[in-house]
């Protein structure tokens, strides 16, 4: 019941407005501290040297690329079953952000790959499935721009999102299922993380900062869209 109440644009709008500053300041403060800690203060890696520092952008972006898709899938299910308006808006506002994070993941990954692996790109399972994720985001965005009616666009996007979700576990577990050039999990793994705390804490900071950035922006975009719809209704 509570969820239903907050899923109406009328109640969601002020709620989002109240949450936005929290997300913004978490993003700004943790981003600044985490990046300074990670890029400047954290010790140099014994094997990878300075190059490992790109992970403070690469890893959180990769998490975001999957997290955004997963949140979109949840929204897609709500949009398809209950036609929840806020879920539809969530779906309309998220894919561009998801695609951006996926793009950043791929670019930072290849920049790191050149000195470490000797190649900007290899067709390894992790890299390929992440690239496929980018293409799925593009397909969803293409549908969004092709359909003028927003509510219909959202439901079409929802359908593609749900079907494309199969790719998410493939990305997550690609390093376990196949022998990949991409290294395995070093954080969420059996026996605890294999990274020293002095390197891990700033990583969590940037991860939380990126997550807050996404929530801040997605709420901002949803609010803008609600305002737009209101204005259209008033002028119509």
């Amino acid at each position: 019941m509570l969820l239903r109440k907050f899923s109406a644009p009328k109640t969601f709008y002020p709620l989002a407005g109240k949450l936005m500053p929290w997300f913004f300041w978490t993003f700004a403060v943790l981003g600044a501290v985490g990046l300074y800690w990670g890029l400047v203060l954290a010790p140099v890696d014994a094997v990878q040297g300075q190059a490992y520092r790109i992970m403070y952008v690469h890893v959180p972006s990769a998490w975001m690329s999957m997290m955004i898709y997963t949140s979109m899938t949840a929204a897609a299910i709500a949009a398809l079953i209950w036609r929840t308006k806020v879920a539809e808006l969530w779906l309309l506002c998220s894919p561009a952000l998801g695609a951006s994070f996926t793009f950043i993941t791929l670019v930072t990954g290849s920049l790191w790959g050149k000195p470490m692996w000797g190649a900007y790109w290899v067709w390894d399972a992790r890299l390929t499935s992440e690239l496929v994720l980018l293409f799925i985001y593009f397909a969803i965005l293409a549908m969004k721009s092709a359909i003028p009616d927003r509510r219909k666009a959202a439901r079409v996007m929802a359908m593609i999102t749900v079907v494309g979700f199969v790719n998410i576990p493939i990305i997550k577990f690609s390093v376990d299922w196949w022998t990949t050039l991409h290294q395995g999990d070093s954080i969420f793994r059996k026996g605890g993380p294999s990274i020293a705390p002095s390197m891990l804490i700033p990583l969590f900071m940037t991860a939380l900062s990126f997550t807050s950035y996404y929530f801040w922006l997605v709420l901002k975009r949803i609010r803008t869209m609600i305002e737009k719809t209101e204005n259209e209704r008033k002028t119509a």
Binding site: T128, A139, M143, A146, I160, V163, G164, I170
Partner: peptide, 29 residues
């Protein structure tokens, strides 16, 4: 997979291109 995309794009002008765009990434596996 293609039929799903064709159904979603059925009412659209650029349906053919969108169909390819949607299906190809999903069909990769």
């Amino acid at each position: 997979l293609g039929g799903l995309a064709a159904a979603l794009a059925a009412g659209l002008k650029q349906g053919g291109t969108l169909l390819i765009l949607i299906t190809l990434p999903l069909a990769t596996p």
